[in-house]
Amino acid sequence: MRATTPLRESAPARGHLPPRPDILAPHICADGPEPTDTNAVPALRPGPRRGRWHRLRRWLGAVLVLAVLLGMLTGWRAESLVFGLPAVVLGAMLPLLLPRVPGWRLSLRGALAFALWFAVQSVRGAVDVARRAFAPDMGLRPGFRPYPLTLPQGAPRVMFANTITLLPGTLCAEIEGDMLIVHMLDTRMALEPELAALEGRIRALFALPPNPELCQ
Protein backbone atom coordinates (compact mmCIF):
# COMPACT_ATOMS: atom_id res chain seq x y z
CA MET A 1 0.00 0.00 0.00
CA ARG A 2 1.45 3.30 -1.03
CA ALA A 3 0.54 6.87 -0.27
CA THR A 4 -1.62 8.86 -2.60
CA THR A 5 -0.20 11.18 -5.21
CA PRO A 6 -0.78 14.59 -3.58
CA LEU A 7 1.83 13.71 -1.01
CA ARG A 8 4.51 12.81 -3.46
CA GLU A 9 5.53 16.39 -4.11
CA SER A 10 6.60 16.92 -0.52
CA ALA A 11 9.13 14.13 -0.65
CA PRO A 12 12.17 15.99 -2.05
CA ALA A 13 12.19 18.30 0.98
CA ARG A 14 13.79 15.42 2.82
CA GLY A 15 17.02 15.56 0.82
CA HIS A 16 19.40 18.45 0.36
CA LEU A 17 17.14 20.40 -1.92
CA PRO A 18 15.94 23.77 -0.65
CA PRO A 19 13.06 23.42 1.83
CA ARG A 20 9.55 24.17 0.70
CA PRO A 21 8.62 27.60 2.02
CA ASP A 22 5.14 26.54 3.08
CA ILE A 23 6.48 23.72 5.24
CA LEU A 24 9.29 25.50 7.02
CA ALA A 25 7.08 28.38 7.97
CA PRO A 26 8.19 31.96 8.69
CA HIS A 27 8.90 31.03 12.33
CA ILE A 28 12.20 29.55 11.35
CA CYS A 29 15.11 31.84 12.06
CA ALA A 30 16.85 33.09 9.00
CA ASP A 31 20.45 32.31 9.90
CA GLY A 32 19.94 29.11 11.88
CA PRO A 33 20.69 25.73 10.34
CA GLU A 34 17.78 24.17 8.56
CA PRO A 35 16.15 21.59 10.89
CA THR A 36 15.96 18.75 8.40
CA ASP A 37 19.73 18.99 8.01
CA THR A 38 20.34 17.77 11.53
CA ASN A 39 19.08 14.32 10.64
CA ALA A 40 19.50 14.11 6.89
CA VAL A 41 21.93 11.58 5.57
CA PRO A 42 23.82 12.15 2.33
CA ALA A 43 21.48 11.37 -0.55
CA LEU A 44 22.69 8.05 -1.95
CA ARG A 45 19.67 7.58 -4.17
CA PRO A 46 17.80 9.90 -6.49
CA GLY A 47 15.17 11.97 -4.72
CA PRO A 48 11.86 10.41 -5.85
CA ARG A 49 12.83 6.83 -5.00
CA ARG A 50 14.13 7.84 -1.63
CA GLY A 51 10.92 9.76 -0.93
CA ARG A 52 8.71 6.84 -1.87
CA TRP A 53 10.71 4.41 0.26
CA HIS A 54 10.64 6.88 3.11
CA ARG A 55 6.84 7.22 2.95
CA LEU A 56 6.39 3.45 2.79
CA ARG A 57 8.61 3.05 5.82
CA ARG A 58 6.66 5.71 7.71
CA TRP A 59 3.40 3.98 6.87
CA LEU A 60 4.71 0.54 7.89
CA GLY A 61 6.00 2.00 11.13
CA ALA A 62 2.57 3.46 11.89
CA VAL A 63 0.89 0.13 11.00
CA LEU A 64 3.20 -1.69 13.39
CA VAL A 65 2.54 0.71 16.27
CA LEU A 66 -1.24 0.67 15.73
CA ALA A 67 -1.34 -3.12 15.34
CA VAL A 68 0.49 -3.61 18.63
CA LEU A 69 -1.85 -1.10 20.31
CA LEU A 70 -4.89 -2.90 18.91
CA GLY A 71 -3.54 -6.27 19.97
CA MET A 72 -2.83 -5.13 23.50
CA LEU A 73 -6.22 -3.44 23.83
CA THR A 74 -8.22 -6.41 22.53
CA GLY A 75 -6.15 -9.17 24.08
CA TRP A 76 -4.98 -10.45 20.65
CA ARG A 77 -8.40 -11.85 19.77
CA ALA A 78 -8.81 -12.71 16.10
CA GLU A 79 -12.40 -11.43 15.80
CA SER A 80 -11.24 -7.92 16.67
CA LEU A 81 -9.63 -7.78 13.23
CA VAL A 82 -13.05 -7.28 11.60
CA PHE A 83 -13.01 -3.66 12.68
CA GLY A 84 -9.38 -3.53 13.73
CA LEU A 85 -7.77 -4.21 10.38
CA PRO A 86 -9.49 -1.37 8.46
CA ALA A 87 -8.91 0.93 11.42
CA VAL A 88 -5.19 0.15 11.50
CA VAL A 89 -4.74 0.55 7.74
CA LEU A 90 -6.68 3.82 7.58
CA GLY A 91 -5.21 5.14 10.81
CA ALA A 92 -1.70 4.55 9.53
CA MET A 93 -2.48 6.73 6.51
CA LEU A 94 -3.46 9.72 8.63
CA PRO A 95 0.13 10.87 9.32
CA LEU A 96 0.71 10.96 5.56
CA LEU A 97 -2.13 13.45 5.14
CA LEU A 98 -0.75 15.83 7.77
CA PRO A 99 1.78 18.48 6.77
CA ARG A 100 5.33 17.20 6.83
CA VAL A 101 7.40 18.00 9.86
CA PRO A 102 11.18 17.87 10.00
CA GLY A 103 12.39 14.36 10.75
CA TRP A 104 13.72 13.52 14.18
CA ARG A 105 15.19 10.59 16.04
CA LEU A 106 15.60 9.74 19.68
CA SER A 107 18.75 8.89 21.53
CA LEU A 108 18.12 5.86 23.76
CA ARG A 109 20.42 7.07 26.53
CA GLY A 110 18.97 10.57 26.31
CA ALA A 111 15.45 9.12 26.51
CA LEU A 112 16.21 7.06 29.63
CA ALA A 113 17.86 10.02 31.36
CA PHE A 114 14.98 12.25 30.30
CA ALA A 115 12.30 9.84 31.58
CA LEU A 116 13.94 9.69 35.00
CA TRP A 117 14.39 13.45 35.18
CA PHE A 118 10.83 13.98 33.92
CA ALA A 119 9.43 11.84 36.74
CA VAL A 120 11.38 13.78 39.39
CA GLN A 121 10.36 17.13 37.92
CA SER A 122 6.67 16.30 37.67
CA VAL A 123 6.72 15.35 41.36
CA ARG A 124 8.53 18.62 42.18
CA GLY A 125 6.07 20.67 40.14
CA ALA A 126 3.01 18.99 41.63
CA VAL A 127 4.29 19.22 45.22
CA ASP A 128 5.08 22.91 44.69
CA VAL A 129 1.64 23.76 43.36
CA ALA A 130 -0.11 21.59 45.98
CA ARG A 131 1.79 23.37 48.78
CA ARG A 132 0.72 26.73 47.39
CA ALA A 133 -2.89 25.57 47.11
CA PHE A 134 -3.02 24.62 50.80
CA ALA A 135 -0.85 27.45 52.17
CA PRO A 136 -2.75 30.39 53.74
CA ASP A 137 -0.50 32.81 51.87
CA MET A 138 -0.14 31.19 48.47
CA GLY A 139 3.05 33.09 47.68
CA LEU A 140 1.89 34.00 44.21
CA ARG A 141 3.26 36.79 42.10
CA PRO A 142 2.05 35.66 38.70
CA GLY A 143 3.26 37.12 35.44
CA PHE A 144 4.50 36.40 31.94
CA ARG A 145 8.08 36.13 30.76
CA PRO A 146 9.38 35.70 27.22
CA TYR A 147 11.98 33.05 26.44
CA PRO A 148 13.74 32.80 23.06
CA LEU A 149 13.42 29.39 21.39
CA THR A 150 16.57 27.89 19.93
CA LEU A 151 15.34 24.33 19.44
CA PRO A 152 14.45 23.25 15.90
CA GLN A 153 10.82 23.17 14.76
CA GLY A 154 8.71 20.10 15.19
CA ALA A 155 8.92 17.44 17.88
CA PRO A 156 11.73 19.05 19.95
CA ARG A 157 9.78 22.31 20.30
CA VAL A 158 6.52 20.55 21.15
CA MET A 159 8.32 18.44 23.74
CA PHE A 160 9.95 21.56 25.20
CA ALA A 161 6.68 23.49 25.44
CA ASN A 162 4.81 20.58 27.02
CA THR A 163 7.55 19.83 29.53
CA ILE A 164 7.74 23.47 30.66
CA THR A 165 4.15 23.09 31.80
CA LEU A 166 5.25 20.33 34.17
CA LEU A 167 8.18 22.20 35.72
CA PRO A 168 7.56 23.87 39.09
CA GLY A 169 5.91 27.27 38.69
CA THR A 170 6.04 27.56 34.90
CA LEU A 171 3.44 27.09 32.18
CA CYS A 172 3.89 27.46 28.45
CA ALA A 173 1.20 29.97 27.53
CA GLU A 174 1.95 30.81 23.92
CA ILE A 175 4.46 30.48 21.12
CA GLU A 176 4.92 33.64 19.05
CA GLY A 177 7.31 32.88 16.23
CA ASP A 178 10.62 32.07 17.93
CA MET A 179 9.51 33.45 21.28
CA LEU A 180 7.94 31.35 23.98
CA ILE A 181 5.64 33.12 26.43
CA VAL A 182 5.95 31.46 29.83
CA HIS A 183 3.49 32.09 32.65
CA MET A 184 5.08 31.96 36.10
CA LEU A 185 3.33 31.52 39.44
CA ASP A 186 6.09 33.53 41.10
CA THR A 187 8.05 35.89 38.87
CA ARG A 188 10.74 36.24 41.58
CA MET A 189 11.91 32.73 40.72
CA ALA A 190 14.76 32.31 38.25
CA LEU A 191 13.47 31.22 34.87
CA GLU A 192 16.40 31.15 32.45
CA PRO A 193 18.67 28.59 34.20
CA GLU A 194 15.83 26.06 34.55
CA LEU A 195 14.71 26.41 30.95
CA ALA A 196 18.28 26.33 29.63
CA ALA A 197 18.83 23.07 31.53
CA LEU A 198 15.61 21.65 30.11
CA GLU A 199 16.70 22.68 26.62
CA GLY A 200 19.95 20.79 27.09
CA ARG A 201 18.02 17.67 28.08
CA ILE A 202 15.72 17.96 25.07
CA ARG A 203 18.80 18.22 22.85
CA ALA A 204 20.19 15.06 24.44
CA LEU A 205 16.83 13.33 24.02
CA PHE A 206 16.62 14.08 20.29
CA ALA A 207 20.36 13.54 19.69
CA LEU A 208 20.80 17.17 18.61
CA PRO A 209 24.14 18.97 18.77
CA PRO A 210 24.58 20.88 22.04
CA ASN A 211 23.44 24.48 21.84
CA PRO A 212 24.78 25.95 18.60
CA GLU A 213 23.81 29.50 19.68
CA LEU A 214 21.36 30.24 16.90
CA CYS A 215 18.81 32.98 16.76
CA GLN A 216 20.30 34.77 19.74
Binding site: S122, G125, A126, D128, V129, A130, R132, A133, F134, M138, L140, P142, T165, L166, P168, G169, L171, A173, H183, L185
Partner: peptide, 23 residues
Protein backbone atom coordinates in the same frame (compact mmCIF):
# COMPACT_ATOMS: atom_id res chain seq x y z
CA UNK B 1 -7.75 17.32 46.01
CA UNK B 2 -4.80 19.74 45.97
CA UNK B 3 -5.42 20.50 42.30
CA UNK B 4 -9.08 21.18 42.99
CA UNK B 5 -8.28 23.42 45.98
CA UNK B 6 -5.84 25.32 43.75
CA UNK B 7 -8.51 25.63 41.07
CA UNK B 8 -10.84 27.21 43.62
CA UNK B 9 -8.33 29.42 45.43
CA UNK B 10 -5.92 30.67 42.78
CA UNK B 11 -6.69 34.18 41.54
CA UNK B 12 -6.75 33.92 37.72
CA UNK B 13 -7.14 31.48 34.87
CA UNK B 14 -3.40 31.03 34.31
CA UNK B 15 -2.62 30.15 37.93
CA UNK B 16 -5.55 27.75 37.90
CA UNK B 17 -4.10 26.02 34.88
CA UNK B 18 -0.90 25.44 36.86
CA UNK B 19 -2.89 23.69 39.58
CA UNK B 20 -4.84 21.54 37.15
CA UNK B 21 -2.00 20.43 34.88
CA UNK B 22 0.63 19.75 37.51
CA UNK B 23 -1.24 18.46 40.56
Amino acid sequence: VAGTVGLLRFPDIFCRLHALTKA
